[in-house]
Every structure is written in C-alpha cells, then in structure tokens.
Design a protein around this nucleic acid. Structure first.
Length: 223
DNA sequence: GCCAACGTTGGC
DNA sequence: GCCAACGTTGGC
C-alpha cells in the first residue's frame, strides 16, 4: 500500500536513557531542520518507515508529555536506510540483537516544514471521536467528514503505534485545525474515565529474561 | 506516579 | 505455535 501522509511521534520532554537525553521537541526539530528518524524498535512501525518516500508529508506529534498532540509539520527528505544507532552500544537505542551484516532497523530522514500555529491536542481529537460533535468541541468547520476522519485515525484506534499512516483527508483536517484553532482548551482539556483494573494480580515470579523488549521510542537531534 | 493497553518473550 | 508473564507505552 502506498501512503503519502504519516504521523510520527517524538518526545518533547527530557528523558534520560543510558545517560543520554532522548528529547526531541518541535523546537529542537525546527532548529536542526533535518534529522534521521532513529530509534524505532517496533516491527510494524519499522515496516511503515520502509514505505515512506521523499516528499511524503508528516504530522509531527508530541508524545509522553503534559500536552500531547500534533505540534508541527514535516516531510520525508530521504528514504529509509539502516538505523546505525542500533549497533552503537553507547547509544540509547542500541539493540544488541542486531548484527552488523543484517540491519534490522531502518530510519528515513525527516525535514521540518512548519510549526502548528495551534498545537492540535490529543484531548480534542479524542473528544471529537467519542462525542461525534465538532460543533460542541468548537470546531464546526471540520464538518461531518472531519469527525469521521478523526474517528478513523490510528492515533485514536491504535494509541501505541509510533509511526502511523494518515489519510489525505485526515491530513487536511489536521492542517485546518492547526491553522484555525477555535476549541476551548478548558472544555476539551480534561476528561476520561479510567476503567478499573480487572484482576487482583498475583504477579511476580522471578524471571531473569534479560532482554528488555525494545518497542518503539524516539529520539533527539542529529549526531 | 498510576495503571490500562498491548507488543514481546520464552517455556512448553 | 500457543499463550501467560512480562515490560513498555503513554495518557492521565
């Protein structure tokens, strides 16, 4: 399948991994302009990265932070090539199981295009997806198609995936939201009724499985 | 800091 | 190749 629009997650807040900060905010991105998108350690995300083409458009998402949401726009500037950080024992994204002669992880280069004039909060998208009401959310201009597009976003349905496909109409809606804003931060900023944990958990057998499954993750500036 | 959701690991 | 345990993601 070919896609021309993608969503990539990065962490704007400092987080130290192996002594190094993996923070990469829209500010960082804007200042470096182009960065290898290193550190993706999840197969599905990796497979998607191998599909990206030069010129494809990217929604730059702030994850694992106070105000998660779409913070900017970018584009693919180089197709995926082996992620050398997987071979560097000093690197936060080192993967001891990757052999030099058979790269397992890949990364494209991504170039900054623009900041979102209004950061499009995940809370807004969730609010619209669950209520189905763009008017109440303060963004009547996205229309019913906008609501449907948001409902279908992987961001809503597949929370944890760090590289996601985005439909063209969805991309346009995100661009409009980022440009026009209009939602009430207070109104959409709160919410969510957490479900209760089911079991009484009898976890805890000692297990030595070193491993440490590396899932996804994301990065900082260029080396 | 908590904890739900979910991908990965590894014993069988 | 199943599946329970485990570890991570990431919103809140």
């Amino acid at each position: 399948m070919t896609s021309k629009y993608w969503l990539l997650k990065a962490e704007p807040d400092s987080r130290i991994v192996k002594g190094k900060d993996v923070k990469f905010s829209v500010d960082d991105f804007e200042s470096v302009k182009t960065s290898p998108w290193e550190g993706v350690r999840n197969y599905e995300a990796r497979n998607l990265l191998r599909e990206v083409k030069v010129g494809d458009q990217v929604l730059f998402y702030h994850s694992n932070c106070k105000n998660p949401g779409i913070a900017g726009f970018a584009e693919i500037s180089k197709e995926a090539y082996p992620d050398y950080t997987a071979w560097d024992p000093e690197h936060p994204y080192y993967d001891p199981k990757t052999k030099q002669d058979s790269p397992k992880w890949f990364m494209p280069d991504v170039t900054f295009v623009a900041r979102a004039k209004h950061l499009v909060p995940l809370a807004l998208l969730r609010n619209i997806a669950s209520s189905g009401d763009a008017d109440a959310a303060g963004v009547p201009y996205i229309g019913l198609e906008g609501v449907e597009a948001i409902k279908g976003m992987a961001l809503i349905t597949r929370g944890r995936l760090s590289v996601q496909r985005v439909e063209e109409d969805t991309w346009r809606i995100m661009r409009d939201l980022a440009e026009k804003g209009g939602w009430d931060e207070q109104a959409i900023g709160k919410k969510k009724a957490p479900a209760k944990r089911a079991a009484e958990s009898v976890r805890g057998a000692a297990k030595d499985s070193a491993a440490g499954s590396a899932t996804k993750r994301r990065r900082r500036g260029p080396g």
